[in-house]
Amino acid sequence: MTSAREEMLARVRRGLAGRDEAAARSDVDARLERQHVGPIPAIGTVEGEAAIEQFITRARAAAATVERLAGPGDVPAAVADYLAGRNLAARARISADLAGLGWERTGLDIVGGKADPADTVSVVSAEAAIAETGTLLLISGAEHSTAANFLPETHLVVVPASRVVGSYELAWKQARARHGLPRTLNFITGPSRTGDIEQRIQLGAHGPRNLHIMVVGDL
């Protein structure tokens, strides 16, 4: 009996009969090798301070809130202020790379590791921010819990100003150079939402209802 694999491939090849096989193979190899970048819209070609400003504007348009901080040392106090201002519990799950920022002074209850369904707040670092559509790129790994991006109702994200880029392609290229290929890449644009009840948009479907972004430092 032919396997499903062989049969499916044979059916496809029947439809492609008459093709120059050698040329087809080298076309495919070249395409995978080259990683050709398609047309990048003008909104995805911004750089430097203009990119940061556009990122902030577009992230806000997607219903995220954004603030700029002078340095990483300001993050704990900004988080404490944000939570107090919204009357949220002073407890947060954080990504490991943020552990050394000096949380002791804030009185917040900080935990690391894998996100838990009981978590209401997470504070994590992003790999990159993309000006084109106000999108964050977060990656999985030893320091980053993917579940922390989805389980808590309030999601706070720290991104260095130097990591704001124009396009998805650039964010992907840089992430790949730094980490290879992580198990999960999350491109996140604004808080979770649904339009499934009579096509009216409501925020906070299954993921976070609040997305707060802190752009840290200068270029």
């Binding site: 577009r58 997607a62 084109e132 559509t133 999350n186 491109f187 996140i188 644009t189």
Partner: peptide
């Protein structure tokens, strides 16, 4: 412009 979550 972009959906909220694009996950790879």
């Amino acid at each position: 412009e972009f959906s909220c979550y694009t996950t790879v």
